[in-house]
Amino acid sequence: MNQYKSVGAVLLASVLSFSCHKHFTVKSNEYKQYVISNEVAADSSVIRYYAPFKQQMEAEMNKVIGTASSELEKSSDPETSLGNFFADAILVEARKIEPAIDISFPTTKGGIRNSVSAGNITVANIFELMPFDNEIIILKLSGAGVQKIADYLAASNGQPVSGIRLKVVDKKAYDVTVAGKPLDLNREYIIATSDYLANNGDDQSSLANPLERRNTGKLIRTALLDYVAEQTKNGKSITPLIDGRIVVSGN
């Protein structure tokens, strides 16, 4: 090891010495643009190299892990079946880590990247739904902190949540309940979210300054995969659900 360090030191010294006495400037340059199209012949040696890995990946990604009874559609509505599925799944899986979790707020509507079609659900479908390596984070918030979440949900026309319900009038939150009970500003609540939101992603100030923070090491995507697989094991399909957890009213 010392021999390699000595050789490296000599080479470095030589380079430094050389660079101190020589100076190069670009006299001219030229480039040629190669257009990638169907006219470019495939390199068979490259194909042979990656083909086994491609086949293995496709076999894993095309694996069926569950079924959806009908489409879970991505939309901008205050409450969506896709958002409810996402948040409910994270609440169930996060409670396996911390049973005392009250609320799941794992993503915003923009963080859900694709709808889930009716029929078979594959591993690839979940990767398309959640392509990011975001981790489940557990936060302890004051009642006032949860009120900030409710205020954000109201002002932003709803987001995927579970365990919390509210009514919205003129973008203000009313009748906020957690686990069926009115929000108590004097107590503390446990929240499951993502590291992205917990780290102020999407300017998420409602989760700032928690009383406690716990990193779980479990990816949101893995939790979704586990949830769908467990539902299948129990003989259940993923069924779209709209239950009035966020109700927007007029004046």
Rank of each mutant, 00 (worst) to 15 (best):
V15C: 10
D43N: 10
S75T: 11
G83E: 01
A51R: 13
I137V: 11
L12D: 11
G66K: 05
I149R: 03
V15N: 03
T122R: 06
V116Q: 05
H21D: 05
Q3F: 12
L207E: 00
D151R: 11
Y189T: 05
L11F: 08
A124P: 00
E39N: 15
Y227V: 11
P240Y: 08
N62E: 08
T108N: 03
I36H: 11
Y34E: 13
P240V: 08
I220N: 05
T193K: 02
A94R: 01
V15H: 06
V123E: 05
V10P: 02
N62Q: 02
L219W: 06
N134F: 03
P106T: 03
D102I: 08
P240S: 07
P182M: 06
V146R: 00
A154R: 06
I138V: 08
V92N: 11
A179Q: 12
H21R: 13
K140N: 03
K27M: 14
Y31G: 14
T25K: 12
L241D: 13
N62R: 07
I121W: 02
K109M: 06
S142M: 06
R214E: 07
L72A: 07
I149K: 08
V248E: 09
N125G: 03
G201I: 01
A154D: 00
T25V: 15
V46G: 03
A192K: 03
D151P: 02
Q147P: 04
V92T: 12
A68F: 06
V168H: 05
G201W: 02
